[in-house]
Amino acid sequence: MKKWLRTLTMTAAAIVTLSACGAGEEAPQTDGEAAPGGEEAVEATDFTVGMVTDVGGIDDKSFNQSSWEGLSAFGEEFGLTEGTDYRYLQSGDMSEFEPNIRQLVREDVDLVWGIGFLMEDAVRTIAEQVEDSQLAIVDSVVVDADGNTYPNVANITFKEHEGSFLVGVAAALQSNTNKVGFIGGVEGALIKKFENGFKAGVKAVNPDAEIIVQYAESFNNPDRGSQIANTMYSQGADIIYHAAGDTGNGLFTEAINRARNGEDVWAIGVDRDQHEEGAYGDGQSVTLTSMVKRVDTAVQIVSERTMNGDFPGGEVLEYGLDDEAVGIAPTTDNMSEEALQAVEDYKAQIQAGDISVPQSDEEYEDFLSSL
């Protein structure tokens, strides 16, 4: 059984046991001990969870949408009511992050999610001001001035560089021009993991390949994404990978327009299987593959743990290839057999520790020198 599924099954069993006790009855404890985490587990009907989106919103077809899908799946599985037991607040811009998180905390929501590393400052502020809150953040580790995590914040991270390496391998093998591109959203340590992992995968297969990199400095500007993609394709890149949220949807628009005009170009999606985002014509798609990141499953697992009295406050939870939390999308219609086999071969090497995938620019330069 997959690690993700095993974790969900174990925690689900705990909730079933709890619910079977009936209203007003306490779940039996072993040797008089409290539930895991030192807190009493609560019944599903007493649990509330809220999510504050980044500026892309829950229909960005990427990161925020995956998070909401995970929270919705959690709520539906345990019979929670959308809008009361589980819900989201959408942020129009960064200035709304802290007020939105604060609103949910003031309403005594049991677990409040901040979706995206841009919410780090907002989560830190609330964590310090409301010590009995239970907060979770995706793609960041929130620390105090001394570098310590907060006991009321669960930090969810992923090894995006590992999954990005694999789509880089695919891009290198299927490029006809030996030139590929990467579009980033807001430049920072997180998106650099996507960029450097991708570049390393390309270079591992084809050291002579050219890689064009540009940042949009926005996760919510599809028009900007289209403009950057247009420039890269015009410069000869035939495959472009994005890690840019809603901005990346502009990449698909540009790729589809060019494909309809007979050009042989591809796009690589991110966070979730974006095959449909590249769909056009009669069952065709410009999406070569996607680097999936199971934010949805992470949201489910942590929400479920918290509902079961096992809130992972102060912990840094990192999910990667070994957890099947990152990798290529299940839709592989446009990938060659050679590329699929190479992806599996390189995946095995990463898992065996034979390849250390770079995350930063410095690590990438070291990686290049080792080729």
Rank of each mutant, 00 (worst) to 15 (best):
T53F: 06
M119W: 08
L104C: 03
V186G: 01
T11A: 15
N152T: 07
A172M: 05
A244C: 11
L371I: 05
S290Q: 02
E128D: 08
I240G: 02
A229V: 05
A136P: 04
S336D: 00
A35K: 07
R258W: 05
C21W: 08
V357W: 02
N334G: 04
S226E: 13
I328A: 03
D322V: 08
E365K: 09
K61R: 06
D366A: 03
E365F: 11
I355E: 09
E338D: 09
S226H: 04
N249R: 07
G353Y: 10
I126Y: 02
V286F: 01
D85W: 08
A244K: 04
P28A: 11
D208N: 04
L190V: 13
I15A: 04
G309I: 14
N230W: 10
A339V: 01
G50C: 04
D139K: 07
E263V: 12
F97L: 14
T297K: 15
M119H: 12
A172H: 02
D60K: 00
E338S: 02
N220A: 11
K179E: 14
I137W: 13
Y86V: 03
G147A: 06
T287E: 12
V52A: 08
R106N: 14
S175C: 15
V123L: 15
I328H: 00
D60L: 00
M10F: 14
G314M: 05
V153A: 03
Y346K: 01
E277C: 12
M1W: 13
V326D: 00
I126Q: 01
N206I: 02
E344D: 13
A298H: 14
K193C: 14
G75D: 10
F367T: 14
T332L: 12
E324S: 05
I228M: 01
I240S: 09
D264P: 10
I301E: 12
E263L: 13
G56L: 10
Q90Y: 05
D146L: 14
N155M: 11
S140R: 12
N257S: 09
V265F: 15
G83Q: 06
L18V: 08
A145Y: 10
A136M: 06
K61A: 05
D59Q: 14
P207K: 00
Y319L: 11
A73C: 00
V295A: 14
D264E: 14
R224W: 13
G92T: 09
F117H: 14
Y346P: 02
M307D: 07
H242K: 05
T306H: 12
D296S: 07
N308G: 15
